[in-house]
């Protein structure tokens, strides 16, 4: 019976058509992959060419020269970015992880829904609005711009990124792993720190890196909060602190309380200067910014791979 049916169709033709379809679709997906990669490679190569020329040691270790003169570096922006991103991480990561833990352990409570909803809203708020918020709440209250204010608004930007990615990663931890610890009589907090967090560490760190990359690249919120500061130099502040016998808190206070610059902020300012050297330098800043984010990602990945092999 069945053979009768199949004797009427040309199986070879069916197979040939399937092979052809397979080849065409495979080719199409490959082409799309290349198309998707073109913008990325284009940007990297273009920035490398335009910015690479101006990269030298001086560029990293000197403050900017006055407008219209050549030379000078972007030490102020590198240090400012570092300070503000560290501040943002300190402000945002602990609450974000706690929120993610709450969301995974109390999945369907009204508070969990509220947190999820507001996190999504926060992720959708334009970053310049977050900057205005920082201006109204911190800058106006303190009556001056500061790295601290910049750190706070960057923290607000990081918050939803870290919460949602950490939540996804924590969800992947098998429930019996947590139950195993609780079954030994461990309290919930110890279970979270010793068992659940390490089990999800790789994914959470990747999420944090995404947040840090996002914060490092933000310009708009810093316009209203950190403002910019051509003379931001941590080394100098520490040296002065030592000379005047100040405590470490005084020095840290100065570092946080001064207006600060950041890489994207400097890029933006330099790019609209009438001086060609400045515009050229802005390309170099773009390159540094790109490499900074890239190396952060690579470092995190190397660390994860090391940790994984150390455990095996």
């Amino acid at each position: 019976m069945a053979q009768d049916i199949f004797s009427q169709v040309n199986l070879q033709r069916v197979y040939r058509r399937r092979r052809l379809t397979n080849k065409i679709m495979l080719g199409l997906t490959g082409l799309m992959l290349v198309l998707a990669l073109i913008p990325l490679i284009w940007i990297i190569v273009y920035v490398l060419i335009k910015g690479g020329r101006h990269i030298n040691l001086d560029f990293f270790i000197h403050l900017p020269q006055p407008m219209g003169t050549t030379g000078g570096g972007i030490l102020h922006a590198i240090e400012g970015s570092l300070v503000m991103v560290v501040l943002a991480s300190v402000f945002s990561i602990p609450p974000a992880l706690l929120a993610a833990f709450y969301l995974t352990t109390h999945e369907s409570t009204p508070l969990a829904s509220a947190i999820r909803f507001s996190t999504d809203l926060l992720a959708g708020v334009p970053s310049i609005t977050v900057g205005l918020f920082g201006y109204a709440v911190i800058v106006l209250a303190q009556k001056h711009y500061s790295a601290l204010a910049g750190g706070v608004v960057l923290a607000i930007i990081m918050l939803p990124v870290v919460i949602r990615s950490a939540e996804e990663m924590l969800k992947l931890v098998p429930p019996d792993l947590r139950a195993g610890s609780l079954a030994l009589g461990a309290p919930e907090w110890k279970t979270a720190i010793k068992v659940v967090l390490p089990a999800a560490a790789e994914g959470i760190i990747t999420g944090i890196m995404l947040g840090v990359a996002r914060a490092t690249g933000e310009t708009a919120p810093l316009l209203f909060t950190a403002l910019g500061n051509d003379n931001y130099e941590i080394g100098k502040m520490i040296k002065q602190g030592i000379e005047h016998n100040q405590s470490i808190f005084d020095v840290l206070g100065r570092i946080f309380e001064q207006p600060a610059d950041a890489l994207p902020l400097t890029l933006w300012k330099y790019a609209q200067q009438p001086y060609p050297e400045r515009v050229e330098q802005s390309w170099a800043v773009a390159l540094v910014l790109m490499l900074f984010v890239l190396s952060l990602n690579i470092l995190a990945r190397v660390w994860i791979a090391r940790r994984r092999s150390a455990l095996q």
Partner: peptide, 20 residues
């Protein structure tokens, strides 16, 4: 409840060693 869980232990279906 902690005292109960110390006195009554459990082994799960899928082996669940802690990541340590």
């Amino acid at each position: 409840v902690v005292d109960i869980r110390r006195r009554v232990g459990i082994v799960f279906q899928r082996p669940n060693p802690f990541p340590m």
